[in-house]
Every structure is written in structure tokens, then in C-alpha cells.
């Protein structure tokens, strides 16, 4: 088996850790929260970063009228299927060993990734803007949307939004498949 094929297969297999490792994390820091509150986002669920975090974020957010964090989302059903399909597809492409298929896979996952991020943005927008009109505390004109990626001040909190271990491994995998394409080009020309 060629080096490019191994890269392609291993790269696409690196999507699988997403089933056990979190993809993304949003955390909230404030002086009275010396240990930041955090949500770990998996492809199947949202989970406490530390025990009780989701409940505590919900409690804080209810004062300004934000919704509770969802326990169920259609994305949590869809994401695992997409990941499984893409992994299988990647492995098959790897065995076939065609560099055009490598590139196709890379572009496809890129498009899916963009759709995913857009979907995430839409959810974040709704989460931060769709407020209960009976909220106890109102700051006219203030939205509580967490950043898509990066850090943002929201009232007394500093909100961070960054990939986590599963996400980083996925990115490494994806770039290995791009590498597979370039290595394959070299192998063919050589």
C-alpha cells in the first residue's frame, strides 16, 4: 500500500474519536466562577465540563430569559450518521487509491464542515437572541450569543468557544487526507 493511501485511510479514521471525545467547548468565566462553567459539545450530546455545569449555566441564563440548553437536537442524530458515512467513504477511497477521490473527500468534508459551523451559528444566534419577554433582568439591546470561535465578553462573563480534543484530532485527520492528495500526486509523477 502506498503512503498516500495510508494517509487517506488513517486520516478519515481520525473522525471516529468524535464518538468519545468532545468536538467543541464553550466555557464561561467570571470572578465568582474561579473554575469556569463549561459545556462540552459532542456529536451526540452536550455534556457538563464539570459536574453540574449545564444546570448552572441554565440557572444563570434564566435570569436574562435565555432558553435551557437542549437535551435533544436533530443535529445529534444527524452528525453521527455523517461521520460514519464519511469515515467509510474515506476508507474506501483510500483503498481505491485515486488522488481525485482524496481531493473529493476533502472538499466534501470541507463543505459539510461549513454547513455544520453555519448550523452552529444559527443555533447560537437563537440561543442568544430568543429571550423570554418575562425575564427578570433585561438589558435592552444586549444579546447573549456566544462567539462562533474565539472569546467574547458577555456581561460579567468572558465566553470562550474553541474546539476540543475530538475536534483537533478531526482537523489533523482532515489535513492528512489533503496531504494524501499531494503525496499521491508526487507518487504518480514519480
Amino acid at each position: 500500500m502506498k503512503k498516500s493511501q495510508i494517509l487517506m485511510i488513517v486520516g478519515s479514521l481520525l473522525l471516529l474519536p468524535l464518538f468519545v471525545l468532545p468536538l467543541w467547548n464553550i466555557s464561561l468565566e467570571a470572578p465568582q466562577y474561579p473554575t469556569a462553567l463549561g459545556i462540552d459539545i459532542y456529536i451526540t450530546k452536550m455534556a457538563d465540563h464539570n459536574e453540574g455545569d449545564i444546570q448552572n449555566i441554565n440557572i444563570l441564563n434564566h435570569y436574562v430569559g435565555m432558553q435551557k440548553l437542549p437535551e435533544k437536537m436533530k443535529e445529534f442524530e444527524l452528525f453521527p450518521i455523517v461521520i460514519i458515512v464519511m469515515t467509510i467513504l474515506g476508507v474506501i477511497f483510500g483503498f481505491i487509491g485515486n488522488k481525485k477521490l482524496f481531493l473529493t473527500w476533502f472538499v466534501l468534508i470541507g463543505i459539510l464542515g461549513c454547513i455544520g459551523m453555519y448550523d452552529f451559528y444559527l443555533w447560537e444566534y437563537d440561543y442568544g437572541h430568543n429571550l423570554n419577554p418575562k425575564a427578570a433582568i433585561k438589558f435592552p439591546g444586549t444579546a447573549y450569543q456566544p462567539p462562533l470561535i474565539g472569546t467574547k465578553e458577555i456581561l460579567n462573563f468572558k465566553a470562550h468557544s474553541y474546539p476540543m480534543s475530538g475536534g483537533y484530532i478531526m482537523f489533523i485527520g482532515i489535513f492528512m487526507t489533503l496531504g494524501a492528495y499531494f503525496v499521491a500526486r508526487k507518487e504518480n509523477s514519480g
Binding site: T35, E51, G52, Q55, N56, I59
Partner: peptide, 8 residues
């Protein structure tokens, strides 16, 4: 009375 909080 039960305190439902799960925070420090």
C-alpha cells in the same frame, strides 16, 4: 426542603 442546586 431539598436544595436542587448542583453548584459549589
Amino acid at each position: 426542603v431539598t436544595n436542587l442546586e448542583q453548584d459549589y
